[in-house]
Amino acid sequence: MVRTGGGLLVSLAVIVGGILLASLRVNLYFYFAGYVVLQYVVVATAWNILGGYAGYVNFGTSAFFALGAYTAIFLIEAFRAPLPVLILAGGLVSGLLGLGIGYLTLRLKGVFFSIATLALSVVLQTLIMNWDYVGGAKGVTVIRPGSPLFGNWVRLLFTVMVGLAVAAVTVAWIIERSWVGRGLRALRDSEEAAECMGVPTLRLKLFATTISGFLLGVAGAPFPYYVTYVEPSSAFNLDYAVNALAMPMIGGTTTWIGPVIGAVLLGTAQQVATVTISSELNLLIVGVVLVAFVVLAPEGIVGLVRRPRGR
């Protein structure tokens, strides 16, 4: 109980800190870049609930993210829905897709599952590209409503993302420490043995895919207001898929802190590199670092810290 209370306190402190930061009014670019890093904290954490805890590698992260974003676009176009509604709806729709891919795990294990998620992402992108109401292939411009909190949209979105990041990490933290987390770990090691030891593997997998999908949708829902112009190729960007798995892999996939470390390090590095070098080169760095880590440090930074001498 003490630890749960402590965790709650930390979460609150981070949120309050975020609000304070937003009212500080430092250079606007700080919030702009900070938003992206925090968004990656949510994305990496969400990916890791399925990929790290349950061992099902999702290559279609961009599909879930984009679905959240496009749900928001639809609701903005149709009802001018407010931001909290967009976030919730984006999460729910992506969560539903997550439930769908959860049932795929009945037939598809390991590699086949991963390939299927990649395929799903392309099919969804094609559907969106041919759906003119949300802009089709040309994309759509989103107009932000006037006078937001904190007097500025970027600052508002930054604060919202702080809250979402805290929420996502908290969810991961709770799952990891609960019997659900232990069950997921068992099925990651051996699905057959887990089922035979009484673990309801299907139910746990459905839970993991749904929560993971929900959080990815949540991360994508504020995206239209952040960029104000959304086209399928930006929302379905493969970079999300690569970052979503690179960050936990680099940080460490077995604990909640791994994706956070990975997202903050890699996300910040990319933001800095985009300004100082070029966006292409920073992607190259992501790829090289990812490959280096899977080859040399399979348990990520967390693993390196825990066992400095290795095995």
């Binding site: 770990r185 068992a186 051996s190 057959e192 043995a193 089922e195």
Partner: peptide, 23 residues
């Protein structure tokens, strides 16, 4: 489903051991 049979008391061991390797 298998996990419910286990809970009822039907438990098997595997010919090729399948331990939870990360634990």
């Amino acid at each position: 489903p298998a996990h419910q049979r286990t809970r009822l008391g039907v438990v098997r061991s595997f010919q090729i051991p399948k331990p939870f390797i990360s634990m």
